[in-house]
Computed example of a mutant assay.
Amino acid sequence: MMAILSWFGKRGTECLAAGVFLGLAIPDMAAAARPLLVPAIAAMLTLSLLRLDPAGVVGALRRPQLVVPAVGFVLLASPLLGFTAASMLDLAPGIVVALVVWSASPPLISVPAIATLVGLDGALALTVTTAAGLLVPVTLPPLVFALLGLELDIGPTALMIRLALLLAGTGAAAAAIRRLAGPARLQRHAPAIDGGFVLVMLLFAVAVLDGVTAAALTEPVRVAGLLALVFGASLGMQALGWLVFNLAGARAATTLALACGNRNMALVLGSAPAAFDPDSFLFLALLQFPIYLLPVLLRPIYRRASGQGWSPPANRG
């Protein structure tokens, strides 16, 4: 079993890229997997935490000069950029809402593990993801209302509590496993842990793609256009993130670019589904393609950046 998991872990990005098409090829599997979405999210976060060095997380927390601007860019500057882009394009109202909400959402819970898979700074990714996730109930509803006039009742306190409980629960589970297994054994079986994460991500992709095959068959041109939009949004936000943070060093900038281009829009749609139309949910489903395909397509860039450590920008005063 460990050998099989290790095989998936060593070929993680390729497996993710191939596996995203499972939900399209076998629609019945997608429908059957849908109830497993929440357990899959918890499992992904637990496995992500297992692969992170606690000292690395502490080190990331000691870099507020990097973490605070990164969270500010993700939650405050990014939605303004998303709204500007949506205003320049001839999009259906539901897609405009989806693009703005996506750009105002925190990074995906899976971003720290994806960062680790491609050789980036998983601890920095986890720190930014956690901080942005806890703050988004306060920042997103007023921003979306100001930009679109859309009132989102996502219950900031309740959502923050749910996120805190998820982080605390998965953190406790990861700490217990780390204590029982020991650092040496976890390091030895790192490829198998990565393989477990890849399999859970594949399960999540299959579940969230429920209904996409039918949409692609009935409206292929429209779905192709939306695919181009979600790839453009992810690549554009990654490029902007890298440009904004490139003075922090190649590895940190590329890690933050990955976080900027992969957002947890499902968190918001799941909290206030009545505020969104079917177009918004189709946008969410199609987002899985850049999430699963871009790590393998951009891996040479990520790998090249991972060879450079973080160093503070020079004092120019």
Rank of each mutant, 00 (worst) to 15 (best):
T218E: 12
R222H: 11
A207K: 00
A205M: 05
L243G: 14
A250F: 09
L203G: 06
G225H: 11
L258E: 07
A216R: 00
V223A: 07
A216L: 03
A215E: 06
M201S: 10
A214E: 11
L227W: 02
W242S: 08
M201Q: 06
A257R: 03
A252C: 11
R251M: 09
P220R: 13
A248S: 14
F204I: 04
L258A: 06
M237H: 12
F245Y: 12
T218K: 09
R222Q: 10
D210Y: 02
L217Y: 07
A252V: 05
L203W: 00
G236N: 12
F231L: 06
A228H: 15
A250N: 13
L227P: 02
W242C: 02
L226C: 04
A216P: 01
L247R: 15
M201I: 04
L227M: 09
V223I: 11
A259C: 11
A252I: 06
G249R: 02
A214D: 09
L256W: 10
A248N: 12
A233R: 06
T255N: 07
L229Y: 06
V208E: 01
V244P: 06
G236M: 11
V221Y: 15
L235R: 10
R222F: 09
A239N: 09
A214G: 08
T218L: 04
Q238Y: 13
Q238L: 11
N246E: 15
A257W: 02
P220E: 06
L217H: 10
F231W: 09
A248H: 08
T213C: 05
A228W: 13
V244A: 14
V206N: 00
A215F: 02
M201V: 03
W242G: 02
A259R: 01
L217N: 09
F231T: 04
L247V: 14
A228K: 14
A248P: 01
A214M: 03
L258P: 05
T213Q: 12
V230G: 00
A259Y: 04
G225F: 09
N246I: 15
G211I: 01
A257G: 07
